[in-house]
């Protein structure tokens, strides 16, 4: 057991150091520094939210339209950034692998955690600000909001874990990633409620794990009036094998990695 604990200590130390390093590299220490991580999702969500407000009026599905759009959009941007940033992660960070205790899984995990923290901070910040202006409700059930985030993030991590090694095998992947993330939009549950779709369409979108996470989050915020549709087991049963495949691919790619 002591060696396991030692390994754990080293890995947490490495992940902490990598996160600080990544934040410094990406955002520097000038002005607001690492707070920049929440600026992009924040602006995106607010702009799209107010655009919908201007186009469609104050409410959608009986809830505040800005709150509805923001709650869908920020997790979607999380998924998109993670997948995009997963591309070529190993080649770009090759020099880090000079240090034996840095494992390639750490690289994926660190990118993912930084995006997750950034987007959750943006979510919290936007939620509180809109709440102050009466445009966001107090959460109906915080535990479902968090559970939804967990399901959404877990699937995102699984996909990132696959994209990262695959992008080292083929450059084609990098080119088609924007298309893939675009196609994901209808399967993210961001811009509709499953309960309001035609039954046939609802059946189809519920095959997408992200939709379950999104419905959970929305239930946690808006409560039962939105008629949430989700399953606890299915998204995990979908994500776990993906994650396993991703870990396997990472092992394979580590052997082939050529480091300058």
């Amino acid at each position: 057991m002591p060696s396991l604990r030692k390994g754990w200590t080293i890995q947490t130390r490495v992940i902490g150091a990598l996160m600080l390093r990544e934040l410094t590299t990406r955002f520097g220490r000038e002005n607001i520094g690492f707070l920049w991580i929440m600026v992009e999702p924040l602006l995106f969500a607010l702009l799209v939210g107010f655009l919908w407000r201007a186009l469609k009026g104050p409410e959608e599905y009986g809830v505040n339209i800005v709150a509805f759009v923001v709650s869908g959009y920020i997790p979607l941007v999380l998924f998109r950034s993670c997948v995009q940033r997963g591309v070529n992660i190993f080649t770009a960070n090759g020099s880090l692998l000079y240090h034996r205790q840095v494992k390639i899984l750490d690289l994926v995990l660190v990118r993912f955690l930084i995006e997750l923290i950034g987007h959750m901070m943006a979510y919290l910040f936007v939620g509180l600000s809109l709440f102050a202006f009466g445009m966001f409700p107090a959460p109906y059930d915080l535990s479902y909001l968090l559970l939804g985030w967990f399901y959404y993030a877990f699937f995102t991590l699984s996909v990132t874990m696959i994209v990262a090694p695959l992008s080292e095998f083929s450059e084609v992947l990098e080119k088609i990633i924007p298309v893939i993330t675009y196609i994901t939009i209808p399967f993210s549950g961001a811009f509709y409620l499953v309960g309001s779709l035609y039954p046939a369409a609802a059946t189809v979108v519920l095959y997408a794990p992200l939709v379950h996470g999104m419905e959970m989050m929305r239930y946690g915020i808006f409560g039962p009036s939105i008629n949430p549709q989700f399953d606890y087991v299915y998204p995990i049963a979908f994500s776990l094998p993906l994650l396993a495949i991703g870990l396997l691919l990472c092992r394979v790619v580590r052997r082939r990695l050529v480091i300058e």
Binding site: V14, G16, R21, T25
Partner: peptide, 17 residues
């Protein structure tokens, strides 16, 4: 890491070891 300063690299390496 080329884009980081000597100090930042030293800090990173000190941390991971």
């Amino acid at each position: 890491q080329g884009s980081l300063t000597g100090y930042d690299n030293a800090r990173f390496i000190a941390r991971i070891y």
